[in-house]
Simulated scan of single mutants.
Amino acid sequence: MANAINKIKKLELSEEEKRKKELMEMQEALVDNKSAILESLKLMRHMEDKGILPLLNGLVGQGDKVLNVFVKATDKEENTNALRNLLLMVGMLGTINVKELEPILLKMNRGIERVAEQKDTDKKTGLFELLKSLRDPEVNRAITLMLTFLKGVGEETGHKEKNTGQESDERAEIKNR
Rank of each mutant, 00 (worst) to 15 (best):
residue 168 S to P: 00
residue 85 N to R: 15
residue 165 G to S: 00
residue 161 E to Q: 14
residue 83 L to F: 01
residue 104 I to M: 11
residue 81 N to Y: 05
residue 147 L to I: 02
residue 79 N to T: 04
residue 2 A to W: 08
residue 44 M to L: 10
residue 105 L to C: 01
residue 1 M to I: 06
residue 72 K to F: 04
residue 63 G to H: 15
residue 150 L to E: 09
residue 11 L to W: 13
residue 95 T to I: 05
residue 8 I to V: 12
residue 124 K to A: 08
residue 98 V to A: 13
residue 137 P to F: 03
residue 142 A to H: 05
residue 128 F to W: 05
residue 86 L to T: 11
residue 110 R to H: 15
residue 21 K to T: 02
residue 85 N to I: 03
residue 158 G to Q: 07
residue 95 T to H: 10
residue 68 N to M: 11
residue 154 G to D: 02
residue 40 S to I: 02
residue 97 N to P: 03
residue 8 I to M: 08
residue 70 F to H: 08
residue 14 S to P: 03
residue 128 F to E: 12
residue 151 K to S: 02
residue 52 I to G: 00
residue 14 S to W: 01
residue 148 T to K: 12
residue 157 T to R: 14
residue 108 M to N: 08
residue 159 H to K: 09
residue 38 L to F: 04
residue 135 R to G: 06
residue 164 T to G: 04
residue 57 N to W: 06
residue 11 L to P: 04
residue 82 A to I: 11
residue 120 D to S: 08
residue 69 V to T: 14
residue 51 G to H: 01
residue 138 E to H: 05
residue 37 I to M: 04
residue 51 G to Y: 03
residue 79 N to W: 04
residue 123 K to Y: 04
residue 93 L to C: 06
residue 20 K to F: 01
residue 157 T to V: 14
residue 111 G to S: 08
residue 46 H to L: 12
residue 132 K to I: 03
residue 65 K to M: 11
residue 126 G to K: 00
residue 151 K to P: 00
residue 68 N to K: 14
residue 110 R to V: 09
residue 103 P to C: 01
residue 123 K to G: 02
residue 166 Q to D: 10
residue 7 K to L: 15
residue 121 T to F: 04
residue 56 L to F: 04
residue 36 A to P: 00
residue 51 G to Q: 01
residue 177 R to A: 10
residue 43 L to D: 09
residue 101 L to M: 08
residue 73 A to H: 02
residue 176 N to I: 01
residue 157 T to H: 06
residue 108 M to E: 11
residue 141 R to E: 13
residue 163 N to G: 03
residue 109 N to K: 15
residue 148 T to C: 07
residue 46 H to A: 10
residue 42 K to Q: 07
residue 104 I to C: 02
residue 6 N to S: 07
residue 62 Q to M: 01
residue 108 M to D: 04
residue 160 K to M: 14
residue 17 E to D: 10
residue 166 Q to A: 07
residue 84 R to E: 09
residue 15 E to A: 07
residue 124 K to Y: 04
residue 99 K to V: 10
residue 139 V to G: 00
residue 42 K to R: 14
residue 135 R to M: 14
residue 5 I to R: 09
residue 22 E to C: 05
